[in-house]
Amino acid sequence: MATTAAHAPAQGNTWSGGKSPMKASYGKLMMWFFLLSDAFTFSGLLVAYGLIRSAWPAFAGAADEFVFSLNHWPVPEEVFKSFPGMEALGIEKAPLVFVGIMTFILIMSSVTMVLAVEAGHRMDQKDTQRWMLWTIIGGLTFLGCQAWEWSHFIHGEHGAGATSAHMNPDGTIAFFGANLTLNQYGPPAFADLFFFITGFHGFHVFSGVLLNFIIFYNVVVGTYQRRGHYEMVEKVGLYWHFVDLVWVFVFTFFYLI
């Protein structure tokens, strides 16, 4: 009875077999559920950030009197206020400008990715190839920016008027930059969370670039043209947009709030 029912054409009931109720292929569906679980992981990190941050006092004084201290959580725009070549241009501080550029690069690469998906729908090999390549370039640029951001964060603020959470008794700065136990910018937890959250996201960008490259290669050699559809571009696109999505949240919670 049960075996015959399984082979009978499904009628009426969406879930009685023979149909694809979500109208999505197995691979795409699994990508969605993987991304959901990945979102849980990132939420765990952001929850940890929110909880630890709210459990520290905020800086109470006027904005221009801000100093780095172990007694309050740092204001992000006082920590992230540099970009490469700033000293040469004579600019003293550029709060959040560099991270803004990084955000723009990632949104832009998300756009080129969706353009690649669109080109794939039209079976346009040349266009898919072109937009995939731009997406890879965007991803690599973002990674380069992040490498600079990390390096700057680790080496610290040395310039005039620099403050630190770690001061010598004579008033000179005892520690520049940040590692997992010491942090110029405030409580060590701030640096730990910076390394873990942006590091975990950066690792996702890195694996995304690798995946994009594999798909790009397949597009170039014509694998999907022969297969008759470009669904692999869609799947890797889902992953890439997710990376962009996570950055939108990291940007808000780590840099803005």
Binding site: P21, A24, V111, H241, L245, V248
Partner: peptide
């Protein structure tokens, strides 16, 4: 991002 870029808005309700 999720609705348009990831196309979720245009998927099935389920």
């Amino acid at each position: 991002i999720v609705g348009e870029f990831m196309h979720l808005k245009h998927e099935v309700k389920t």
